[in-house]
Amino acid sequence: MPAILQYEFMLRALAGGVLVGVLAPILGTFVVLRRLSLIADTLAHVALMGVAIGLASRFLPTLVALLAATTGAIIVDQLRARGRVPGDVALAVVLYGSLAVAVVVIGLAGGFNVDLFSFLFGSILSVAPLDLWLLAALAVVVLLFVGVFFVDLAQMAFDDHLAKVSGVRTDRLNLALAVLTGATITLSMRVVGVLLIGAMLVIPVMIGLRLARGLRAAMATAVLAGVLSAVSGLTIAFYGDISAGGAIVLTAMALLILANLWSRLRHRRRTADV
């Protein structure tokens, strides 16, 4: 057996990586197509605020972060739905507001420590059994949600007004999507880290959009790219003794470059044929 599979922490990290690799691109497909990529970063910083409060109060940081991200998702969705402020401005205000709270709380609690560092950048050593169970439960919920509401979500991603006129309950679905995205981001923190989780919602999706024809195929390709990045990234992190989040996202970036090259080559060949 290779060394990487002989450690229990590494098996947990790999399982977590696979779950994040599946979850983030599935939700990310709708986030990217609706041009809401900033929502991932915003909710990640809200989650960071939760982590800071959790670490300072010595209460389960993951659960506090989950609560914070869910609340943040609802607030962001309401701000967007009321349309009083442009979507990106609302997101920016929530992002910097929660980051400021996080920084203050971290300062009051005595500054950075190893635990916080692992939340920021992800760590193969920090995936606890509880994180894994929560991620697995979330994966079941997200797969059911997307399976049942796929057509509705696709309509919304295509055009919000058209979806409404088709009878899609866009208000409820938007809220559900925001809350599930918040939960995914929070629970993915241990593997990829707060600062980089947004990349897992965006980069694999871009790979899917470059390579696939059809929405389902694009989502499947994105999931494949997500899992491949997570597993290879974690392996590189293990052998190279580097940050898990950084290794995963750099692998995803490398795949994106390859996908771009492939897509350009294919396009050139097609135009040459014509």
Binding site: A154, F158, A212, R213, G214, L215
Partner: peptide, 8 residues
């Protein structure tokens, strides 16, 4: 960026 085909 929308990947859907005409039929989709």
């Amino acid at each position: 960026d929308f990947p859907a085909t005409v039929s989709e």
